[in-house]
């Protein structure tokens, strides 16, 4: 018996590797090599033609003294507020209301339709939604028309063109884009919670708010981590909405790292510098993800 396993083993191992081969080759060609090559490019000066010239860490020292670099990463923080903090809080309340209040007082289809409505912006191309928003927020667009119609015409603005309004306006659009995601995840998570918990709490006289704090929030903590992590990464990477709404303007007040890298690569043809921006962004994302995972593991251990 033992001789059979010994002779069969190497064969078995090899034949499982063959299943992994296509995936491994593609992964190497499309992700591993480009990633490494991009890091190399960040150490060079290159316009995309001819040979890259090695300049060491020059692009990075240049980066840290570039005002635009700091602006773009400051705007990333604004994106985190708009795409993580606010949607998670609103999403939590909406999911709890839909699940623990309306879900028990109305037919399931009512809740399903509402949930689907909140989720709709998530499945549409964000660029197309951005273009619609761009028109709505134009000086002659729908927002100003509504303000005028209700007698608040004095509040009308060039929402995306005014440097002091552009970033908050973009943030509001991002809240709109993101809101459905936590709602759907949290509602799915609540489906896992034993309904008797809610019933017992309700019979004991716990109001909706008390149930939210004592049952809902602790029960869906794992999902909250996932939502926070994935949305934070999405916020650090955001590109499409900025492209559609403002192209980073006015005066770079809404520029973000990904758009900054894009223009540096393809408009300024400063490839080495663009690669440095992209490398720093990658590093930040990896650190944020690792930090989240350590934090989550520690919190879970504490619970156990």
């Amino acid at each position: 018996m033992s001789t059979i396993t010994v002779t069969r083993r190497p064969h078995r191992e090899r034949s499982y590797w063959t299943y992994f081969l296509p995936g491994a080759v593609l992964f190497t060609a499309v992700i591993a090599i480009p990633l490494v090559y991009n890091i190399y490019l960040s150490l060079t000066r290159w316009s995309g033609v001819g040979k890259p010239r090695f300049v060491g860490l020059h692009q990075y020292t240049r980066l840290f003294s570039d005002e635009l670099f700091w602006t773009s990463f400051r705007n990333s923080l604004a994106m985190i507020v708009a795409m993580v903090v606010v949607p998670t809080i609103i999403g939590l309340v909406l999911a709890a209301v839909l699940f623990d209040y309306l879900g028990r007082r109305f037919r399931g289809s009512v809740v399903s339709v509402l949930r689907a409505t909140f989720y709709l912006p998530q499945i549409l191309p964000v660029v197309v939604a951005g273009i619609v928003w761009g028109w709505i927020l134009r000086p002659d667009g729908a927002v100003n028309a509504i303000l005028e119609a209700i007698g608040l015409g004095s509040l009308a603005q060039d929402w995306l063109g005014d440097p002091s309004f552009a970033l908050p306006t973009v943030m509001l659009v991002m809240v709109w884009v993101q809101i459905g995601y936590p709602v759907v995840i949290f509602m799915a998570a609540l489906g896992r919670v034993d309904p008797e918990l809610y019933e017992a709490a309700e019979l004991d006289g716990a109001g909706w708010w008390a149930r939210l704090r004592a049952i809902t929030i602790p029960q869906i903590r794992p999902e909250t981590y996932v939502v926070a992590l994935t949305c934070t990464i999405a916020a650090l990477k955001v590109f499409g909405p900025i492209f559609a709404l403002t192209r980073g303007g006015p005066e770079n007040t809404t520029n973000v790292p990904s758009y900054f890298a894009y223009t540096t690569f393809f408009k300024k043809l400063d490839v080495g510098y663009g690669a440095a921006i992209a490398t720093v962004l990658t590093l930040i994302i990896v650190l944020v993800a690792a930090g989240f995972m350590v934090f989550q593991a520690r919190a879970e251990r504490k619970d156990a």
Partner: peptide, 27 residues
């Protein structure tokens, strides 16, 4: 698990093996 390939278009990942629709949670 939730992929993050696109900035806005994220996706739902249901941890439990199928959750009942909220309305179906009948007390």
């Amino acid at each position: 698990v939730t992929p993050t390939t696109t900035p806005g278009a994220s996706n739902a990942a249901d941890p439990a093996g199928g959750s009942p629709t909220p309305g179906a949670v009948s007390a």
